[in-house]
Design a protein around this nucleic acid. Structure first.
Lengths: 256, 256
DNA sequence: AGGTGTTTGTGAAGGGGTGCACAAATCGCG
DNA sequence: CGCGATTTGTGCACCCCTTCACAAACACCT
């Protein structure tokens, strides 16, 4: 967090949704709750207890209740939460009531897969434009979309109201692409390139680095191997590896 | 963290590496430091100051120093850190001195891209096996590897010493695949399927959900739009939110 | 209506992470 | 050899987050 929000700045009662200024940790878990709720709705459940939803989302039930309490009181004591109501509430808070359009830059190996990934459309995102800096790829059709040149970004943003830019280029090209996205008014970027982007204030960048995830797993694997190789100091339960970060913080990040 | 380690259990001086029991937040940042260090080494730098490395990794310099201090004192006051030495140290701590082999399950859209992603090989990981449950895909050659059936996992693990399993299947199939991986002895899983996996203690699962990242961005986008629509109570700066959270987080991992 | 059982919402305690600010340590130079 | 400049390593205070535990609230049954 680069800066803390000033304490009273969000009070502002009277506005339409009255933004509750959610803790960042809560925001990062809301999408997981939403996914679990959709699954429960598909399974026919009309209400869920905090315990049930917490299990489906892989978190502690107390944590779930506190998270939801930040959105307001949408549960009924003795009964639980109304699934449909909660879906609407969380969707609204996340800004998913309107379908958000995404521009994807870089149609290499990874970009190709992202362009065809159906997990986006299922959850309220529409890839509206494919862009690449390599003119030899311009014109190629992927999943019904024509690849356009990165220089056309201004027109593209004018045509479709792009709200998020996804960077799937090689690392050396990423910063230039980010600059171009910012220049045409994009204020949210999802970066798959393994490098740090520098952007002006007001622009959000989230980074996903597939290799980093593997390296973190490698660390734990390494540690587990070292421990089991030791003659067991005094604790006998080393085989079970009580240690654990097993499924907790894991099982949901990107949390960390 | 599902459980805390008992206070004195890790002291155990005398073992070969003397595992320092790193904070989880530090572990999630080490890969980013490693990437930045490689870039610096390629650029010809032999030493870096904490300030320089922190900038390259997108973190605070004090945080970086504290993180590195957990590994031991490998810096020289008044000079900085030896790049090559630090690369070796971090690689060693992360267990990257040996090349780790990965089995990838699910060669659909996403799996296909992961199989061809060169970011893995570059950083010490080798995809040693491609596996799918769909027999119509078995035999297909991707990036020089033949797709094999998931039932062959026992033989595959016997041939290659698999240390990490990557699940890139649709959500409904993920749990069954995880069970099979665990059954053949895999204790680290990277899960791209949008669902919660349940695994026994001792098995680490990290989850990467591309749609969740977009939803988190959507929230901030939504909030920014609501705020700018307001007459601005007092705060004008919206804060870029460059920092992030553990694992897959903003501008640095996942993160978390 | 009243009692009982269930579940939410939250106060409070504790742990962990972050960042400031400074002392200790090292280098280079006169 | 001593001094100043530079940079690391870390004690400390603060803040956020997590978790426990419990009172308040609601539904259902008799």
């Amino acid at each position: 967090m680069s800066q803390h929000r000033q304490p009273g700045a969000s009070g502002r009662t009277g506005a339409i949704p009255a933004l509750p200024d959610l803790p960042e940790a809560t925001v990062s878990r809301l999408p997981e709750y939403l996914r679990a709720l959709h699954a429960l709705a598909d399974a026919g459940h009309e209400t869920v207890s905090s315990e049930g939803l917490a299990n489906a989302a892989g978190v502690n039930s107390a944590k779930l209740r506190k998270d939801l309490s930040h959105l307001g009181s949408y549960g009924t004591r003795g009964v639980g939460y109304d699934v449909a109501l909660l879906v609407d509430q969380i969707s609204s808070v996340l800004g998913l009531t309107q379908c958000r359009t995404v521009a994807l830059v870089g149609v290499g190996n990874l970009g190709h897969a992202l362009a065809g990934y159906d997990g986006f459309a299922n959850r309220g995102f529409r890839i509206a434009a494919l862009v690449d800096a390599d003119r030899s790829r311009v014109g190629e059709v992927i999943n019904g979309l024509v690849v356009r040149h990165v220089d056309e970004l201004p027109q593209i943003v004018a045509e479709e109201s792009i709200s998020i830019g996804v960077i799937a280029t090689p690392a050396p090209a990423a910063q230039a692409v980010a600059d171009q996205l910012v220049a045409v008014g994009v204020t949210s970027i999802l970066n798959f390139a393994p490098c740090v982007l520098s952007v002006p204030d007001g622009v959000d960048v989230r980074k996903v680095d597939l290799a980093i995830e593997l390296q973190i797993l490698s660390f734990h694997e390494h540690r587990k191997a070292s421990l089991t190789a030791l003659p067991a100091t005094g604790g006998s339960a080393l085989t079970a590896l009580p240690g654990g970060f097993a499924a907790t913080d894991t099982q949901e990040a990107i949390g960390t």
